[in-house]
Write a protein that binds this DNA or RNA. Structure first.
Length: 110
DNA sequence: GTTTTGACAGTAT
DNA sequence: AATACTGCCAAAA
């Protein structure tokens, strides 16, 4: 592998990579799976830091509302929207994804 | 060692 | 209901 990050970071990366194709997960969900329900900030940092180095499917990571985190009219927004569309994830022009349809239901034990 | 950042989430007003 | 602030964790400068 490239470099060894902290166990938390590796976990976050692991779960991000574990997102099935055609599904999307939220920052909070990944952070929760990693054991830190409030590490959503760390998730965003991971994407920035390791999206390329670790080949992370960052396009499958949305915010808590199931929307693309980027502001519209940005390259990242268009790129993510395009990738999601290629995976069968329908997004609105606002980048909204229906979590009830494409939401990654790994274990939502309330 | 301290300060700043990072594509957020949750709570408070 | 909508907006603002705070909290959280980890890494880079």
């Amino acid at each position: 592998m490239k470099k060894e990050l902290s166990p938390f970071s590796e976990k976050l990366i692991f779960y991000i990579r574990a997102i099935p194709r055609g599904k999307v997960a939220t920052y909070g969900q990944i952070a929760r799976l990693a054991g830190k329900p409030h590490a959503s900030r760390t998730v965003s940092w991971i994407l920035h830091s390791c999206s390329k180095a670790y080949k992370l499917p960052w396009h499958r990571v949305l915010n808590s509302r199931g929307k693309i985190s980027f502001p519209p009219q940005t390259a990242g927004f268009a790129r993510q929207k395009n990738r999601l569309a290629l995976e069968g994830v329908e997004t609105t022009f606002l980048g909204e994804v229906d979590l009830s349809v494409h939401g990654w239901k790994k274990k939502r034990a309330v």
